[in-house]
């Protein structure tokens, strides 16, 4: 069997013909395997969904209990066989419950890694290398300029700013699923013990993490009685930073936790004053390292900066191709680029 007989790209997403299932389909399908709970990978409205228990729980709180016709939980290390095809789930280290899916047919092994990272994350199980013939990888940060800095340094940047500007609220934009909770855990690891305040939109997912045994310390949803929260840490979804909601705070310093903050122009475009380079995706070095460690001879790149990664694979003597998949990168760390003329528009004088 050729790899493309086992997995191919259809408009709905990655499709496995022998088992008649999709992985992370972007449109409603009969049967779906889901790698993780970010909304661009985990959508509502499928017939049957197979995912880790954590991912199913995340989909449940986001879309309501009836987000799919039926669900089946598969734990890390467990497998499900459909016809002659075997699907096994291994941790991807991206967010709580995130999994790589190993697709096996006879001797052929393809790993669909979903989104993943290798950097430490106290809120989810660490990435596990799964040897395979074909490795399907993301390339969100697939350029060699992306080398995520040590996490401790980034958290210190925040804590130092709190000391220097104790009269100001430190407002941090972070994606609601994964990044926000990881940031809380990292701040706790650095020894910060005061309450961390959160925007209402983060509450259910944060409580879900805590219910899964992730220790985040004293996390409080902001209430009307909290005042201006001068000198406190407030975490909110990125979109809330520019919201009128922020007017309650004491001259807020706006921070944003994202791998994109590595690029100064990106941070400036967003008006960020305290960029925190914290990413839930593999950086360039980890993409390359992971490809090597899987031992795969063929690499398929789903989304992100695929040109550079495909080029690198070719130089290493690996077969590689971009899958040109659309629909990924809507949540998590991908963000729409600024169209060219907005710069002109804003810089007209």
């Amino acid at each position: 069997m050729r790899p493309t007989d086992l997995l191919k790209v259809l408009p709905q997403g990655l499709y496995c013909p022998p088992a008649d299932v999709f992985i992370d389909p972007v449109r409603p399908v009969e049967r779906a395997l889901i790698t993780h709970g970010h909304s661009d990978h985990a959508r509502a409205g499928h017939g049957a969904v197979l995912a880790t228990p954590e991912t199913l729980a995340i989909m449940g709180v986001r879309y309501g209990a009836n987000f799919a016709g039926s669900t089946q939980a598969v734990r890390y290390g467990e497998s499900v066989t459909i016809g002659d095809t075997k699907f096994s789930f291994a941790p991807a280290g991206h967010v709580l419950g995130s999994a790589q899916i190993l697709v096996e047919a006879g001797p052929l092994r393809i790993v669909v890694s979903g989104d993943y990272k290798r950097a430490p994350d106290p809120t989810c199980a660490p990435f596990q290398v799964v040897p395979c013939d074909v490795f399907v990888t993301e390339a969100t940060f697939g350029l060699p300029v992306f080398r995520h800095p040590p996490l401790g340094d980034e958290v210190q940047k925040l804590l130092r700013s709190l000391q220097q500007f104790p009269e100001q609220t430190h407002l941090i934009g972070a994606y609601a699923l994964g990044k926000a909770q990881r940031l809380m855990a990292l701040i706790r690891e650095a020894g910060y013990e005061k309450p961390i305040y959160i925007h209402g939109a983060l509450e259910t997912l944060t409580r879900l993490y805590q219910a899964h045994g992730v220790d985040l310390g004293d996390i409080r949803k902001i209430s009307a009685e909290d005042g201006t929260l001068a000198g406190e840490i407030v975490i909110c979804p990125p979109s809330a930073i520019q919201d009128r909601w922020t007017r309650r705070f004491a001259d807020p310093i706006t921070a944003f936790a994202s791998g994109w903050m590595r690029i100064r122009a990106r941070a400036r475009q967003r008006g960020v004053e305290l960029p925190l380079v914290v990413s839930d995706h593999a950086d360039w070095e980890d993409l390359c390292r992971t490809i090597r460690e899987t031992g795969a001879g063929e690499i398929w790149v789903t989304h992100g900066a695929e040109d550079a990664l495909v080029h690198w694979c070719h130089v290493q003597g690996l077969r590689a191709q971009p899958l040109h998949m659309v629909g990924y990168g809507d949540e998590g760390e991908a963000e729409p680029a600024l169209p060219h003329d907005s710069q002109q528009a804003s810089g007209a004088a």
Binding site: L143, V145, I263, A265, A308, H311
Partner: peptide, 9 residues
Amino acid sequence: LFGLSYDFV
């Protein structure tokens, strides 16, 4: 890789 990176940054 340098060219692609410079374009991006």
